[in-house]
Design a protein around this nucleic acid. Sequence first.
DNA 1: TCAATGCTACAATAATTATTGAATTATTCA
DNA 2: TGAATAATTCAATAATTATTGTAGCATTGA
Lengths: 120, 120
Amino acid sequence: MDETIAIRALAALAQEHRLALFRHLVRAGRTGVTAGELASSAGIGATSLSFHVKELERAGLVTQQREGRFIRYRLDVQGMRGLLAFLSEDCCDGQPELCGDLVPLGSGCGPTRRISSNDQ
Amino acid sequence: MDETIAIRALAALAQEHRLALFRHLVRAGRTGVTAGELASSAGIGATSLSFHVKELERAGLVTQQREGRFIRYRLDVQGMRGLLAFLSEDCCDGQPELCGDLVPLGSGCGPTRRISSNDQ
DNA sequence: TCAATGCTACAATAATTATTGAATTATTCA
DNA sequence: TGAATAATTCAATAATTATTGTAGCATTGA
């Protein structure tokens, strides 16, 4: 992940409403959520939702798909993965033994194993 | 981790200079880095460094210790762990099978195993 | 085609954040 | 104590970000 994109993603998440929207979308998973539902879940107006969700899109954290007169938003799983990887990839500068259990392996999802070494 | 602190930490990292300072401190580990070294590593002045490093402290990502006329900064490992945990804890809403390899287990440090099952 | 619905774009304003230089505080050493 | 060094505080300015209302576009269904 590029530093510029990482900063954009961090900035996107560093805002009350956007963080709430993001977490809502994370929970919704593949199903996704329409713009209107997102707006009412966050207690914000349509204009404000549009502004914030666009920031999340621009940061590569969310995708959009039109469904008739609705627009459905979904978590961009690759984008989320990229950010998490970026935040943890430099820890210990390649010397895991220096920091111990820095990354909370047990708090996320996915199998309990290492991924191939070419993950960035 | 409290949402307010998470936002503060995300905002702290969502800035070019602070992200560079943070990563420098991550690499430096327990040794830490003095303010002056940090400033020149980031190519910024003393005033600017003071401003940015204070933001990182306020976000619980960095600690400070005076050493004579120097001040040494170190990564706050607990703070970093807390943020990483917060960002991944809600993924899949407790249903790991829904999202697959969302969390980049292989990119961080620490042992390849789950932490106790009562992590949420 | 017209009205209604869902959402986005634009513009104005308010609020927050970053940068810079000058002054200030803390420490060391002669 | 006084000079030098390391870092912070303060104030002014510039830049970025958030909010709100209004207008506009896309889609549906009568």
